[in-house]
Design a protein around this nucleic acid. Structure first.
Lengths: 245, 245
DNA sequence: CATGCTTGGAACGGTTCCGTACAGAAACGT
DNA sequence: ACGTTTCTGTACGGAACCGTTCCAAGCATG
């Protein structure tokens, strides 16, 4: 348990491209519209990409790392409503007629890289290209699907199964089978007490689906996690492939 | 308990307009772009407005009634991911680059009236008017906010408090303090067993927040319901007012 | 090495909620 | 009027999960 061995794991539908998948899906013309304004930025774990209520001044297309979209309650307790990585971008409310971010968005799990573009440049670009706008809105739509599945899983499934789902969502967005996350991190997504996270992790470990070491989760059997997550995993990912291939 | 007395109730931020609020918020020019194609339709409780997976052929702007947006799991258990009425429309995925509906949408609580427009007509209209597109996307955005709060409330709150929230969402969308819904209906939104609904209703009744009669809930003390719902009620409604006033 | 911080493991009783089952009450059809 | 269906109330044991507390292990810092 002390040393971290390289675990094989089933590397199936993982995101492999180095850069941002959404930008990669753009036509050359659309890419040309925004690429002059894209500027690389990097974040460390815990950094805020946007703050709830703040004006959206930039949009960030991630190349690496995981961004957690958090909603807060009573100004203290916070919960994740969704997750995104190199398959998407942060700031979509701007394309939907809102100039302020409704959510806190922070870096999770690992350091992140992104390409940043000023809000007004992106607005100008989507006004010139309908296909660009559609591509970006498609991501927002798929994020919405993810939220829907989050609702369903929180209503229908046990902590263990919901945890399996979140591990998969993380796994899809990191390059390795090793995911850095503490029990406290899981609390954001599951909304349970920390010891319940411990218990659920142990159960997943007993089933040989993962191995947990300090501040890390190693994905051992991805298929088993998918089975546990059931219908709450897969549909948004499948729709992403259909609409943004 | 047998007879339904007229209950005063606090009629605060209710939706009063007869027609669709979103259409009402359009500029004369934008309204002119689509009104030639709007056709009145009506639904009874249980009718499907769209089916999951089916192509979006029409969009529906509701004038009366409540539409429940349902996600299904394992082909049998279904759960509500959101609710809308005369403040919105059904079919927004079309504006976000998806030609199929990801959800079942069905009529809840009471019979509904809507103005229906063929998909291609609406697409043509939003291509002519950026402000029309923005207005419609703003509704989709606010629906997303509602979904976010649904996630948070399901993670943080007891059945009783979550029920208070859903009653408010229904109350906002009907013209009266009397809401037709069976315990089974609540199950869609809370994801609990039917008897838990009974218990939670009794608790809300003890607190004089509502009165429950067969297949109906009477809102007695709206302020009390708002207090129970806490931060999970109000924010999307407030953003609607800000962005679509 | 000494110290302090973060993270994880384990335990306690208590509460909420579940699954199931059954029965009464109200509406409905004929 | 009568049976049927729908809706609601209630009760039982049991499972899941909570809040709390305490302690141990890993890690960083000086």
């Amino acid at each position: 348990m002390a040393t971290i061995l390289p675990i094989s794991g089933t590397v199936s539908s993982r995101i492999k491209t180095g850069g941002n998948r959404l930008l990669g899906a753009l036509s050359p013309n659309d890419a040309a519209l925004i690429s002059p304004y894209l500027e690389p930025v990097s974040f460390t774990v815990g950094d805020y990409i946007t703050r709830a209520g703040a004006p959206i001044e930039n949009l960030c297309f991630f190349e690496q790392g995981i961004a957690g979209v958090l909603d807060s309650l009573d100004n203290d307790r916070r919960y994740a409503v969704g997750l995104l990585g190199a398959e998407g971008f942060v700031g979509w409310p701007l394309l939907m007629g809102d100039d302020r971010s409704p959510y806190d968005v922070t870096m999770r799990a690992e350091a992140g890289r992104a390409l940043r573009i000023p809000a007004e440049k992106l607005i100008a670009a989507v006004e010139q290209s309908a296909t660009l706008r559609t591509t970006l809105l498609r991501f927002a739509h798929i994020f919405m699907l993810q939220m829907g599945r989050t609702i369903v899983s929180s209503l229908a499934h046990s902590i263990e199964r919901r945890m399996a789902r979140w591990i998969l969502l993380y796994h899809d967005r990191v390059q390795a089978d090793e995911i850095c996350m503490t029990h406290e991190e899981f609390r954001l997504m599951l909304g349970v007490r920390r010891s319940s996270v411990t218990d659920a992790l142990h159960r997943l470990e007993e089933e040989q689906a993962i191995r947990a070491v300090r501040a890390k989760v190693l994905v051992v059997d991805r298929a088993k996690l998918i089975a546990l997550a059931g219908d709450t995993y897969g549909y948004p990912e499948q729709e992403y492939a259909r609409l943004l291939a």
